[in-house]
Each structure stands twice: as C-alpha cells, then as structure tokens.
C-alpha cells in the first residue's frame, strides 16, 4: 500500500463518516458543517485523481457558495434554530427504496469496469488546464455546451429570482 492509497482511505473515511453525521445530526447547522467536511473530502479525492483544478473549484463553489447558501437558508428560514425537529417524515420508505435502487444501479455500472491495481495509470498532461480551455472554445469540441452552460445558469438565476419575488 503506497501513500496515495492511505490518503484515499483516509479521505474516503472522512467522506463516509461526515456524510453519516450530515443525516444524523439533530442540529441543522451542524449538519451543514458536516456537509462541508464531506465536500472537502471529495476535493481531496479530486487531488488524488490529479484534477487539481476540479479540487479547487470544488472548494470554491461547493464550500464557498453552496454550503454558505445552505447555512443561510437554515438560519434565515427557521424561526427557532434550536427546534429539534424529527429527522424523518412519512416518506422515508420511498426514500429508502430510491436510495437502494441508486446503489444497485451504481454497483451494476461499476461491475463492468473491472477494477484492478495492475492497470497502468493514464498519463496526465502537464498543460491539462490549457487543454481544458482549448476544448471549451474549439468548435469541434465543446463550444456549444460552453455557451449553453451560461444560458442554463441564467435560467437558474431567473428561476431563483421568480421564487424569491413570490416569497416577498
């Protein structure tokens, strides 16, 4: 077992344990903080995959924006933050079924990969970031998805604005 495997097991353990705390924490802000630990663990996994850009983006977007949004939502929508509400509602059997199905689907897909430790690592080009940029702008590749991403995000913004206006 080499160092990267140890780091992988540590971060996987961090992800699983903190994910468990996310669903079991009684205090909603604690749940959000545990979620941040989970997301940080995912960033470490990206580093192990030599995707440094994605790791940093994971921290910037998920911890810097989405987690903060969650905490704001929790703090601003609940009248009483200490309320120890029940952690489940009447739909829990359905949720259990859906989760079990997703797990089965992931297991089914993963079975086909044939994981092996002997497989050689794909070389990561040193200018991978620049290549990503090239791929995003070249017409043969992803320029249309690149522009559509902007439209999609603006659509999300318009939706958020609409919801926020109705609330007011």
């Amino acid at each position: 077992m080499d160092a990267s495997q140890i780091i992988f097991f540590l971060s996987a353990a961090l992800i699983l344990v903190s994910a468990l705390f996310v669903v079991t924490a009684r205090n909603l802000v604690h749940a959000a903080l545990w979620l941040i630990a989970t997301l940080f663990g995912v960033a470490v996994l990206y580093v192990l995959l030599e995707a440094g850009f994605l790791a940093v983006v994971q921290v910037v977007v998920y911890i810097g924006a989405i987690a903060i949004l969650f905490i704001f939502a929790v703090m601003l929508t609940r009248r009483d933050l200490l309320s120890q509400s029940s952690q489940t509602n009447a739909n829990w059997p359905v949720a259990l079924g859906v989760s079990a199905l997703s797990l089965a689907a992931i297991a089914f897909i993963a079975r086909g990969f044939g994981f092996s430790l002997d497989r050689p690592l794909a070389p990561v080009p040193t200018d991978s970031l620049e290549r990503l940029g090239q791929a995003l702008v070249s017409p043969q590749q992803f320029v249309l998805p690149f522009e559509v991403a902007s439209v999609l995000l603006v659509a999300a913004l318009v939706g958020a604005v609409y919801v926020a206006m109705n609330k007011k």
């Binding site: 941040i36 940093v56 921290v59 910037v60 911890i63 810097g64 924006a65 903060i68």
Partner: peptide, 11 residues
C-alpha cells in the same frame, strides 16, 4: 486557490 482559501475564511 486564493479564492478557495477565502471561502474557508467566510466559513
């Protein structure tokens, strides 16, 4: 990375 460290500060 600089922005990411700022995110920890916000947190």
């Amino acid at each position: 990375y600089l922005v990411a460290a700022g995110a920890i500060g916000t947190l």
